[in-house]
Amino acid sequence: MAKNSSARPLMSRIKDNLPIVVISIFSLILFVAIYIEGGNAQIFNTIITGGMWALLAVGLALVFGVMNIPHFAHGESFMIGAYVAYFTFTPMQEYLYTNPNKFLSAIAPLGAILTAGVAGAILGIIIEQLIFAPLRRRTKKDWIMNAFLLTVGISFVLSNGANLVLGPNFRGISRYWDVKAVEIGGAYMSVDRLIAFAISMVTIGALWFFLRRTRVGRAIRAVSQDETGAQLVGINLNFIQTLTFSLATAMASISGASLLFLFQAYPTVGGTPLYYAWYVVMMAGLGNVVGAIIGGFIVALLQTATQLFVAVSWTTVLPTVVMILVLLIAPSGIFGSEVKGVQEQ
């Protein structure tokens, strides 16, 4: 009898969390399959890609959770980051070519990536103040859809603007750190990749700490849970929203900068990252920051599996089919979305 009573809740708990259970099993199978087919190299590749998508998706989730903005110009923040890193790094590289200096060579890429982050933060402030603040003052009616369309417009302007000013050509670097690849468990990983992964993890960790442990971070979470309540305890909504948007933009820029060796900088480089970031938040649950981190890795698994077992060119088709299935089972994502506004929409 005692056994019975403990078994029942387990079954019903599985039932309640069916999407999570299904996806966990599915991910595990993919993981094993990738390991068998591709070995350590593909597993590391997946983890590194997952970190990348997680960093981007966290920004999207944050902007949606706090501001209710479905951000379609997130890829352009990535693009700006890539450009800024390119234009700060290449002169430094040239200088170091004629004046070799080990210490500076090691630190210059970090400087470029940091600069990109700062540029992204500033861009975020400008966009928020120039576009969303006026809309907020004018009307909050139909906010989600209006905000979404505005981000579509922003994306259009930024990518075409980049094309206008800088032209359509690709600007890339072969690598940030001119050192040999590192061997881990029989697989060779370039230092650039490892550091890009480290940067994404550190950035997510820093954000986590900020949201959980600091006064302003707590205020950001407060705004995402109850806007009116937040104002009533003295939180400046305008400030929090601008800050949030700026943070998300900075994170995407850092991402674009640290992946410059992989993606290069060109006007429409944001398309792929945007697609995957959206993929992650749709699957995990809009506005769910923790879900976005886990989702990043699940999507990377899917992506690697498609590349390994089908073909690279099918990576936009098969995952979409999976996504459709997921959304049919769980219309608001695997981990759900309790963000205000989504339900009312």
Binding site: I144, M282, L286, V317, T320, L327, P331, Q345
Partner: peptide
């Protein structure tokens, strides 16, 4: 497909489906 989805979810679903269709035509 979009029946159970609301507003923004439906828009994004249509976007994904569009990308998938383009991938299909490409392949």
């Amino acid at each position: 497909l979009t029946l159970r989805l609301r507003g923004i979810f439906a828009a994004v679903m249509a976007w994904f489906l569009g990308i998938a269709l383009m991938g299909l035509v490409n392949n």
